[in-house]
Structure formats: structure tokens, C-alpha cells
């Protein structure tokens, strides 16, 4: 039995003009061109997209779940980044 491990590609699809590309899943393909063609058949059979990105999975760097806490703590004590932190009196009107 021949196994030849086509590389794995992550597929991102823009659902409609004006939206960003969103990760939809992955697939195997020998090269980028085929990855896009396969993505069309696997992920857009019902017109789910207007644009496809394919990127080799091995090229993606990802944060690790273990740093769930520490990686994001700089944002923990900065509630003032949210507009609701500030009480603006009603008389001021919309802001």
C-alpha cells in the first residue's frame, strides 16, 4: 500500500464581501493550487464563500493552552479600556 502523505492545509473562507476570512477546516493536497481547488469542493458546495485562503498547517504558529492565564493577564487589570468604565452624565447626550 502506498502512502505519500500530502501536506495538510488550513482553509480560510471569506463568506461574503466585506467579511474577514474565517477558518473552516483543513484538508490534504499536494500543493497550494490543489488545496484551493479541493477547498472549493469540500467547503463551498453551497456557495459558502467568495474567497479562499490555503496555508500549510505546519506554517502556523499557535499559542499554547497552558499559557491561558499568563499570556492574557496584561489585559486583566485594564477595565478602563472599555467605554462602559466611564460614567457620562445623561445630560451630555449620546457619546
Amino acid at each position: 500500500m502506498s502512502t505519500n502523505d500530502w501536506p495538510l492545509w488550513e482553509i480560510f473562507i471569506r463568506g461574503a464581501h466585506g467579511l474577514s476570512h474565517r477558518h473552516v477546516g483543513s484538508l490534504h493536497a499536494p500543493d497550494a493550487e490543489m488545496a484551493i481547488k479541493n477547498a472549493r469542493d469540500v467547503y463551498t458546495r453551497r456557495k459558502e464563500g467568495v474567497s479562499i485562503w490555503a496555508i500549510e498547517s505546519s506554517a502556523i504558529a499557535a499559542s499554547s493552552p497552558e499559557d491561558k492565564g499568563s499570556l492574557y493577564d496584561p489585559a486583566d487589570n485594564k477595565v478602563y479600556r472599555h467605554p462602559t468604565f466611564f460614567d457620562i452624565p445623561d445630560e451630555v447626550g449620546a457619546m
Binding site: S2, N4, W6, P30, D31, M34
Partner: peptide
């Protein structure tokens, strides 16, 4: 499969 990999 082999041919496509060779082409790539």
C-alpha cells in the same frame, strides 16, 4: 496521488 506529489 504519486503523480500529483511529483508534479508539486
Amino acid at each position: 496521488r504519486d503523480g500529483m506529489m511529483a508534479h508539486a
